[in-house]
């Protein structure tokens, strides 16, 4: 997990067009080793498209993407871990958590999966080692998400990209997960995380990049993790005015009660 000097992820003037529609326009993003960057924005603002473009999942129509100072065609993929937004774990063929996580060690030209011991260690970090032999089809949505996180962690990546990783996960597991991310960050791993609300990751965030209609509208200190940021339609344009303190004693209106 040795982080090297230079940038971990760099996009310059990236445009992405999907289905004839401009999703991203002129997006610049730079992530350094050990940095934890949140991508924020309302639904449809382009957060997920940005991480997918950065990892070569969707094509870039204009601009440049570099991973570890290399173009995507020559990127050191074994140093990148990715947790996609959706949960694709449910398929027709029964597949154990161990099999899913072992596939996480495939990268670039390495076409052999990892060992069971490596998979078990990654599952253990997510509190899932005891379910290693259970088919993911029999797991809850939250458990499936933890398997996908373990699949990214098994690579011991220098860049970890997470697209809404805590969706459907219980609070205790989120705390364990955040502690794991913190350990990785201290060891030099850079983390890019797409979030709707920053509360769980607030202590780790170095920076927030806010997207609006496919453009970066803020790249700087993360916003306060307050309720006003929690809604999926929140635009996250900054700076926010601090909410005014209520004057006088709080009152409670009872609605619908008998007079």
């Amino acid at each position: 997990m040795s982080a090297r000097a230079g940038t971990v992820l760099s996009t310059r003037g990236v445009h992405v067009e999907l289905g004839g529609r401009q999703i991203l326009m002129d997006v610049d993003l730079t992530v350094h080793p050990g940095e934890v960057v949140a991508l924020l924005g309302a639904n449809g603002s382009g957060k997920s498209t940005l991480v997918r473009a950065a990892l070569g999942v969707v094509p870039v129509s204009r601009g440049e993407v570099h991973l570890f100072d290399s173009p995507l065609s020559a990127a050191p993929w074994h140093r990148v871990g990715y947790v996609p937004q959706r949960v694709p774990a449910v398929s027709g063929v029964p597949t154990t958590a161990c099999e899913v996580v072992r596939a996480g060690l495939l990268s670039g030209r390495r076409l052999r999966p990892g060992t069971k011991a490596q998979a078990l260690a990654a599952l253990d970090a997510m509190g899932m080692a005891h379910l290693a032999r259970r088919p993911v089809q029999e797991m809850s949505g939250g458990q499936q998400q933890r398997v996908l996180i373990a699949r990214a962690l098994v690579r011991e990546p220098d860049l970890l990209v997470l697209d809404e990783p805590t969706t459907g996960i219980d609070l205790g597991t989120i705390e364990t997960f955040v502690a794991t991310i913190d350990r990785m960050r201290r060891a030099g791993t850079a983390v890019v995380v797409v979030l709707h609300e920053t509360e769980a990751f607030a202590a780790l965030l170095d920076r927030a990049v806010v997207l609006r209609h496919g453009r970066v509208v803020h790249d700087g200190p993360p916003p306060p993790a307050r309720a006003e940021h929690a809604g999926p339609q929140h635009e996250h344009t900054h700076p926010h005015p601090e909410p005014a303190e209520p004057e006088g004693p709080l009152t409670l209106d009872i609605v619908g009660g008998d007079a």
Partner: peptide, 11 residues
């Protein structure tokens, strides 16, 4: 199993 993850792994 997961084409998107495979692409993001450089496969």
């Amino acid at each position: 199993h997961d084409e998107e993850f495979a692409r993001a792994s450089g496969l």
